[in-house]
Design a protein around this nucleic acid. Structure first.
Lengths: 220, 220
DNA sequence: AATTTAAACGGACCTTGGTCCGGATCGTAA
DNA sequence: TTACGATCCGGACCAAGGTCCGTTTAAATT
């Protein structure tokens, strides 16, 4: 009914740096043609510059295109839509975080006990989102695509893993959803910017939440 | 920089039926002029009809306007933007739910013990959102306005109250945010539609979550 | 009833996200 | 080196959200 035949194959976000793959991370790029790759880089750079100069609102598809000396169609072919472009920009810091909790030093990385890692994880995400809030929010409009995004999936997988080691009897997958929902950028933005809560309070709430959720059942 | 002087005063969502007010519910309407009220009703009716006929995607501002025999500008003056119109449509069922848990029969309404009410609350929201998912999602795009919406605030206030009676020592406000986040329409949509989870599982997870979160601290 | 004013109206107009397709380019195989 | 098909490019084009402002009208006042 409402699904047009999609002129472009809707690129699966080729991702500019292939450092780390994991369960639920993006399928690798189909290896772009030389000119395509060059333009992709140009576009990302141009977009970044525009953000720095005029904020996220200044990132108009046409503006990005012309700033990169490229046709508008090219932007859409590469990134699918505005959200795709924004997410591509976000991708970088996402990968860094991922690297940190996959192979970095404890308490975020392996080596510390799961419970401690879970605590550290939330705090890390919390503060990372607190920067780039503008960008994070702008990339959200399609409210449900966020769950399917590879980066998000990776976070969720990680949390699920940790939970399985702590509370094996629970529905860890859904529990992970809940925990991550409480770290949602939109929520953080609302609480800190619109309601003036200090980050410390959010942090404390996260730690408390983890404690509550992982507290093992007490026999009556 | 980017803030235009807003041609219309951006109406605070007058709400068509003033049944129940509570902490955090919309400020009352400034009482519309006769013609304005008439047009407002027409617009809502037209929008509802369009949804029934062509789905949410068929609700174009222009379509609604002309279906209601009204100018486009009128739609925007009354509802601010598309999201505003959609939220106005959602308002009705929102008020019914609110009535249920404020004054309805137990276990949702007063009379049952707080813990039980909390459980029932989640289940109710869960199933309510499961219908009207289309509409709920369409009304979301501006990801953060959802926290400020009076209806949402009412839900949160209610949950906070219940929590205060169950776990007075916790940061109940943030805990309420977390609980509600796990009932987010976008999340429900993702889990049920995109990942095929049965509602029963979501329901079980909610009950379990409530249990975990409200479990009082066990001394070492 | 006439006057006045704030509010509402309508629809032309602007912006921007998104689409299409003829033509230019790249990579490859002969 | 040439030829050829797949891929990519560019920018005209379209739709829909959102804005502006001259005109109309409800309702309060005299």
């Amino acid at each position: 009914m409402s699904s047009a035949p999609q002129p472009f194959p809707m690129p699966q976000e080729p991702s500019d740096a292939p450092p780390l793959l994991e369960l639920g991370t993006a399928p690798e790029e189909p290896c772009l043609r030389a000119d395509a790759a060059r333009n992709r880089a140009r576009l990302l750079e141009a977009a970044a510059r525009l953000i720095a100069e005029h904020g996220v609102a200044g990132v108009t598809m046409e503006a990005v295109a012309s700033a990169a000396r490229v046709g508008k169609g090219t932007v859409f072919r590469r990134f699918g839509d505005r959200t795709g472009l924004l997410m591509a920009l976000l991708d970088h810091s996402g990968r860094r975080l991922q690297a940190d909790f996959l192979g970095g030093p404890p308490p975020l990385g392996p080596g510390a006990p799961p419970l401690e890692r879970l605590r550290a994880f939330g705090v890390a995400v919390l503060y990372r989102s607190a920067e780039q809030l503008e960008l994070q929010l702008a990339a959200q409009p399609e409210a449900c695509r966020r769950f399917s995004h590879p980066a998000t999936q990776a976070l969720r997988t990680h949390v699920t893993m940790l939970l399985r080691q702590i509370v094996p009897d629970a529905d860890c997958e859904l529990l992970a959803h809940t925990l991550l929902a409480s770290l949602d950028p939109a929520l953080i933005h609302h609480l800190t910017r619109q309601r003036g809560m200090p980050m410390a309070r959010l942090e404390a709430a996260w730690v408390d939440l983890v404690a509550r959720v992982t507290r093992t059942q007490r026999p009556a």
